Simulated assay, not measured.
Amino acid sequence: MEQIRDLQKLIKLTGDRAKLDAKANGTYIVYKTNEGRIVKEFSNGEIIPIKQQDHPYE
């Protein structure tokens, strides 16, 4: 169980670092929500859902 907690901590730290990098570079992060939607999150807190046609290379 300790390995799972360590992995969860690393995942959280990676997400936090991605948010810091996005803020420093004026970009956004992309992730999948608990509801299964893919969204863009900007450093100002704005969250925009991505529609299927927004990412044709998937």
Score class of each variant (00 low, 15 high):
1 M>R: 07
1 M>W: 09
2 E>F: 01
2 E>L: 05
2 E>H: 01
3 Q>A: 10
3 Q>M: 09
4 I>P: 04
4 I>D: 08
4 I>C: 03
4 I>L: 14
5 R>P: 06
5 R>G: 05
6 D>I: 13
6 D>P: 01
6 D>K: 13
6 D>Q: 13
7 L>F: 11
7 L>D: 07
7 L>T: 04
7 L>E: 10
8 Q>C: 05
8 Q>M: 10
8 Q>G: 03
9 K>M: 07
9 K>G: 02
9 K>T: 13
9 K>F: 12
10 L>C: 05
10 L>N: 11
10 L>D: 09
11 I>W: 04
12 K>A: 12
12 K>C: 06
12 K>D: 05
12 K>I: 08
13 L>I: 02
13 L>V: 08
14 T>W: 06
14 T>S: 07
14 T>R: 13
15 G>A: 15
15 G>V: 12
15 G>M: 15
15 G>K: 15
15 G>I: 14
15 G>T: 13
16 D>Q: 15
17 R>N: 15
17 R>I: 13
18 A>Q: 15
19 K>S: 08
20 L>G: 03
20 L>V: 10
20 L>A: 08
21 D>Y: 14
21 D>K: 15
21 D>A: 12
21 D>G: 03
22 A>T: 08
22 A>W: 02
23 K>Q: 09
23 K>N: 01
24 A>I: 11
24 A>L: 14
25 N>V: 12
25 N>G: 12
25 N>Q: 14
26 G>V: 11
26 G>N: 14
26 G>Y: 11
26 G>W: 10
26 G>L: 10
26 G>D: 07
27 T>G: 13
27 T>E: 13
28 Y>F: 15
28 Y>S: 10
28 Y>R: 10
29 I>C: 05
30 V>S: 03
30 V>C: 05
31 Y>T: 09
31 Y>D: 06
32 K>N: 06
32 K>V: 15
32 K>D: 03
32 K>H: 07
33 T>N: 09
33 T>I: 07
33 T>C: 03
33 T>Y: 01
33 T>D: 03
34 N>A: 10
34 N>R: 14
35 E>Y: 11
35 E>S: 14
35 E>F: 01
36 G>H: 05
37 R>E: 08
37 R>F: 08
38 I>K: 14
39 V>L: 00
39 V>K: 05
39 V>W: 04
40 K>H: 02
40 K>P: 02
41 E>M: 09
41 E>I: 10
42 F>R: 02
42 F>T: 09
43 S>L: 00
43 S>G: 02
43 S>Q: 00
44 N>F: 05
44 N>M: 02
44 N>V: 05
44 N>G: 06
45 G>A: 03
45 G>F: 00
46 E>M: 09
46 E>F: 00
47 I>L: 00
47 I>Y: 00
47 I>D: 02
48 I>F: 01
49 P>I: 00
49 P>W: 00
50 I>Q: 06
51 K>F: 03
51 K>M: 04
52 Q>L: 11
52 Q>A: 14
53 Q>D: 09
53 Q>V: 04
54 D>W: 05
54 D>Q: 06
55 H>T: 12
55 H>G: 09
55 H>N: 14
55 H>C: 12
55 H>K: 12
56 P>C: 03
56 P>I: 09
57 Y>D: 13
57 Y>N: 10
58 E>W: 14
58 E>I: 15
